[in-house]
Simulated scan of single mutants.
Amino acid sequence: MNDSSPTQDPEKETETETETETEIPQDHPRYQSLITRHRIEEGVDTGITSPQGLIAEGRGEAFDYLLGEKTTSSADDAARAAAALLLHAEHPVISVNGNVAALVPEAIVELAEVVEADIEVNLFNRTEKRMNAIADHLYDHGAQTVKGLKADDQIPGLDHERGTVDADGIGAADVVLVPLEDGDRAAALDAVGKREIVIDLNPLSRSALAATVPIIDNVIRAVPNITEHASALKQADNVALTTVINRFDADEVRERAEQEIRRGELRSS
């Protein structure tokens, strides 16, 4: 091997390979996908997301590609039911992990305001530094209160850090929105009687199967869509909200989403 070959300057390589959102052309056919990847990568650099979050994003992106990277009618039906469930809840909580904080911080804050829900950080790879980084990130995007730092309660059946919650947050919630998959935690929350709204691009995941309302959609579309439906339903009484909730069929939505994915056509990238 010839060791005399020129090497590229590391700082120059980083500068040329790292894109910012403003450098990604909006007419690129995969614009939204590239923006999403960039935000996850940036989150890793700032300590908000973990490297495992990149893998999770890639897995979800594959399903989204087959869905045509759009919100299907079944996902929209689920988003409306989710809005009704959050508005009807006595104590709704939105659970936030690193990927969610990196991808849709403003949308999470807006949804929490519309449905009067708490926001709580809950992580698989939990460290005090990362918890504070995510909380600060949410505050920077308009959150008034962020829970999860007290860590004074535990979800039964989860020995891992994912089971660590705030007693007056997820611990006391009757409805929990869990954006992005986490099968063990979804099952544990279901076991203690909490109703769950899960956003997951895989209709066959344990999270989607455990959910009261599974939304088979990309989180960047699903969260604003729930907010839009919640705003429309904001003045509805409990009878009307209950009707929306009771008419929702989770099994049907999962089946419709699965068929959409199986029929997915290859699209140019």
Rank of each mutant, 00 (worst) to 15 (best):
A187D: 10
H88W: 04
A75T: 09
T46G: 04
E15R: 07
E228I: 01
D166E: 08
G183C: 14
I94H: 13
E116K: 12
L34D: 00
A187L: 15
D200N: 14
D64G: 12
T14V: 08
I48M: 15
G169R: 02
S269D: 12
G68Q: 02
T243D: 15
A78N: 05
L54E: 11
V192Y: 00
T20A: 02
G264C: 14
N122M: 10
I215N: 01
V178I: 15
H88G: 02
T7S: 04
L204P: 00
Q8P: 00
R185Y: 14
A101F: 05
A186E: 15
A84C: 07
A187T: 09
E17V: 11
D45Y: 05
S231V: 06
A56E: 13
A62V: 06
T71M: 10
L233P: 09
A75P: 09
I245C: 06
A257R: 01
A82M: 10
V93I: 04
T71C: 06
Q52T: 12
N125K: 05
R126A: 15
D168T: 01
G47E: 13
D9W: 00
P214I: 12
E21I: 05
E181N: 14
L111D: 01
P92A: 09
I226W: 04
P51V: 12
R39G: 12
G68N: 04
L266G: 10
A232R: 11
I170H: 03
I215E: 01
A211N: 13
V96Q: 03
L177N: 13
E13I: 08
P156M: 13
D249M: 03
L158M: 14
E252W: 07
T49H: 07
A102F: 09
F124A: 09
E265I: 11
D27L: 00
D45I: 03
H160M: 07
N122G: 05
E23K: 03
P203L: 04
A81E: 09
H160D: 13
G264E: 14
T72Q: 03
D190M: 15
E265T: 12
D76A: 08
P203V: 02
A107M: 03
R126V: 11
G171C: 00
K194N: 13
D251I: 06
T242N: 09
V165T: 08
A101T: 07
A75M: 08
D3N: 02
A250N: 08
T127S: 05
T36E: 10
R30D: 01
E11P: 02
T212Q: 08
D217I: 06
A186H: 11
A143K: 01
N238C: 00
D153P: 00
E17D: 08
A81K: 05
T20P: 07
